[in-house]
Amino acid sequence: MPRAPIPTWCFALVVVRKGDQFLIVQENKPGQPWYLPAGRVEEGESFAAAAVRETFEEGGIPIRLTGVVRVEHTPLPTGARMRVVYLAEPADDTPPKSRPDDESLGARWVTLDELRGYHMRGDEVAELFAYVAGGGTVHPPDLIKGEGEPYRINR
């Protein structure tokens, strides 16, 4: 007998780094906390494409993905949640979004010290930024592949 599919929600999170600064975005309701660019992967979209799209929508800047910090899988009683945490750099000198819209109230560059002055969604952001700033392991962005892609040795 075939098994029922397991509902799985997929999210891309992006640590965008420019020198000693990191991009944070304020969620789209007044009084809401700050976070890093993140969002659900849309139907037919790759994790990488979602990371680029969410960063542009929420932060207003184009990015280049430079690595994968971590892949997370959380089994839940009602399904599962997957998150891919990417590392990225700005693709150009576009300033962060400063006008509120449906995606966010705005974005800004902050240092680790400045981050303490912001109401964050949780401790995860500071921990993640410190991990990256401290030289934590980052895997190549092509670690995540589509099913059926050929295996190749990169030298």
Rank of each mutant, 00 (worst) to 15 (best):
R17L: 02
V52H: 13
W9E: 13
V16K: 06
Q26E: 06
T55M: 14
Q32P: 01
P30T: 04
I144L: 01
T8D: 12
D101H: 01
P150F: 15
R3A: 09
V125T: 06
E72D: 09
E43Y: 06
D123E: 07
Y118R: 03
P100F: 01
P140T: 00
R70E: 01
P150S: 13
I6G: 07
E45K: 02
E57A: 05
P62E: 14
P77S: 05
H139W: 08
E149Q: 11
L115W: 06
A88P: 14
L87D: 06
K145S: 01
M120E: 11
N154G: 14
N154P: 07
A80I: 13
V132T: 09
M82I: 12
E89Q: 11
I24C: 02
V25N: 03
S46F: 03
S98K: 08
L76K: 07
G146I: 13
E54P: 09
G67T: 00
E27A: 05
F56N: 10
R83S: 04
G136P: 07
E43G: 05
V41M: 10
M1E: 15
P96E: 00
L23K: 02
Y118H: 07
R116D: 15
K29N: 04
R70L: 00
P62G: 15
E127S: 14
D142I: 12
G117T: 03
E127C: 15
I6E: 15
K29W: 07
N28A: 10
E147C: 14
Y131A: 07
F56C: 10
G117E: 09
V16D: 08
R70F: 04
P37F: 05
Q26N: 04
G60F: 03
V85D: 11
H73R: 15
K29T: 05
G39H: 14
R83E: 03
V52T: 14
T78G: 14
P95M: 01
V25K: 00
D123K: 15
A107D: 06
V132R: 06
N154L: 15
M82Y: 06
P140L: 01
